[in-house]
Design a protein around this nucleic acid. Structure first.
Length: 441
RNA sequence: GUGGGCGUAGUUCAGUGGCAGAACGCCUGACUGUGGCUCAGGAGGUCGCGGGUUCGAUACCCGUCGCCCACCCCA
């Protein structure tokens, strides 16, 4: 509440990040970027705003509704029409970029992109209207090596951040369709059936059977599918017997899982026929990372071999994965997984100001200490020295430098270690070295 | 979109149909060359917003906006 009556809250679903928040975010982003680069992915950035036609029709019906649209401006504003939109994910802009710069880009283009996206969703735990996605995508190859590389990179990120209990759920769009066909679900009911199947781990088999019934899908179909969910490895092949596309999709997943054993994703992947994923552009393998204490996922991805084709007119195979920064932060925060150094003080040394005449001296000393590589703050006013020390203490700055009348007369600086209370007076030229020694002690 | 909970000081929250409270934080002083501890004092509120009931509403009723939790969906 402000005195003016104006709300000080950020817009719904948006957040301010205070220094402590930013440090945490940057810590996680640094790990992600390092691992992505280690896997040979190159950085890319695209505009926050896209032409609206670029985004429409890429995310499915639900996705379309959640796009933040931007009204036409000026005289056109009254028309209520939108011609621009905030980007909804990083994958569709990537597809546009690949189509636009195909001549410049390498045959196999691997890029990472860490930028905010916007969705007009209802905010909830770990869900915001502005959030960062940390994407990797590899374009130009249909090889399962690509799918495995992507899984390896994100698994390595999570491992490096300290996650020990994440699991990768793996499925395949073609396999899903094949399963429904083999089970006897009519093609026009596939969408409904997938929504119900996706809830299996939440509402159980009876629940899904009920949903099937409510949507007019035969009970016999669900019975055939249920065996598969109970024991996918044992029963999938027999369900798919004679279904060529389904069988080869299953073979593809088996290859991915086999190859992944040689990477950081080893032991993490679980074939999960109930995984559906909402975005409509996926065509092949789909995957999602889960952790026990979060209802949603830490990230998701998959193969989308014809999204680029929507821009280019010629398909370019692609596979990618998106880690959700805020999901990772929510879980790391609750589990207290952040390293201790992150809440370090903003400065290592606070230079005090004795009186108005000493301001230039203080600034010069701060400059010297900074040139020596120290993080140095300077108190802005010639307040009582006790107040300046109190400020340093409250900000957890470990060392305070004082040039009082006595120090100035003798060309010296007093350095006080606030942790121990010890104080020493050294020649001005040795101040940086002495401060460094105190900090290391 | 569905169900539930909550909006009171900078923060976390008490509270009552009749003068607006605590803790922490903040400011000042005790302590005019030294922080933490202690003590004394002080500032800070249209009780989310709008309407209704009432002699009187921060409290009761209705609406609205915002936040939180669960579901749905997603990263």
């Amino acid at each position: 509440m402000s005195t003016s009556g104006l709300s000080t809250q950020p817009a719904r679903g948006m957040r301010d990040f205070l220094p402590e928040d930013v440090r945490r975010r940057e810590h996680v982003v640094a790990v992600i970027r390092r691992v992505y680069e280690r896997h040979g992915f190159e950085p890319l950035e695209t505009p926050a705003v896209e032409n609206i036609e670029t985004l429409l029709g890429k995310y499915g019906e639900e996705g379309n509704k959640l796009i933040f649209k931007i009204l036409k401006r000026g005289e056109q504003e009254a028309s209520g029409q939108a011609d621009l939109a905030l980007r909804y994910d990083l994958t569709v802009p990537l597809a546009r970029v690949v189509a636009a710069y195909q001549a410049k880009l390498p045959k196999f283009f691997k890029r990472y992109q860490i930028q905010p996206v916007w969705r007009a969703d209802r905010p909830a735990r770990g869900r915001f209207r502005e959030f960062y996605q940390c994407d990797i995508d590899a374009l130009g190859s249909t090889s399962p090596v690509v799918d495995v590389e992507v899984l390896s990179a994100v698994s390595e990120v999570l491992t490096e951040l300290g996650f020990t209990d994440f699991a990768v759920r793996l499925n395949h769009r073609v396999l899903l369709t094949a399963m429904l066909e083999s089970a006897g679900v009519a093609p026009e009911q596939h969408g409904e059936a997938l929504v119900a199947l996706d809830k299996l781990d939440k509402i159980g088999a009876e629940g899904v059977a009920g949903e099937f019934g409510a949507r007019g899908i035969s009970a016999a179909a669900f019975e055939r599918l249920q065996k598969v969910f109970d024991a996918p490895e044992a029963n999938l092949r027999s369900l798919l017997a004679g279904h060529t596309a389904g069988t080869s999709a299953l073979d593809e997943l088996a290859i991915i899982m086999g190859l992944a054993e040689s990477t950081a994703a080893a032991g993490r992947i679980r074939l999960d026929p109930s995984l559906a994923r909402g975005l409509s552009y996926y065509t092949g393998a789909i995957m999602e990372i889960q952790v026990p204490d979060l209802a949603g996922s830490l990230g998701g991805g998959g193969r989308y071999d014809n999204l680029v084709g929507m821009f280019l007119g010629r398909d370019v195979p692609a596979c990618g994965f998106s880690l959700g920064l805020e999901r990772i932060l929510v879980v790391m925060g609750e589990r207290e997984m952040f390293p201790k150094g992150l809440d370090a003080a903003a400065a290592e040394v606070l230079v005090t100001i004795w009186n108005e005449d000493a301001r230039a001296d203080a600034l010069a000393l701060a400059g010297d200490l900074r040139h020596a590589g120290l993080r140095v703050d300077i108190y802005p006013d010639a307040d009582k020295i006790g107040k300046q020390l109190k400020y340093a203490s409250s900000r957890q700055v470990p060392v305070v430098a004082v040039i009082g009348d006595e120090e100035r007369a003798s060309g010296k600086v007093s350095l006080k270690d606030l942790r121990s209370g010890a104080q020493q007076t050294v020649p001005r030229a040795e101040a940086a070295d002495a401060a460094g020694r105190i900090l290391k002690a």
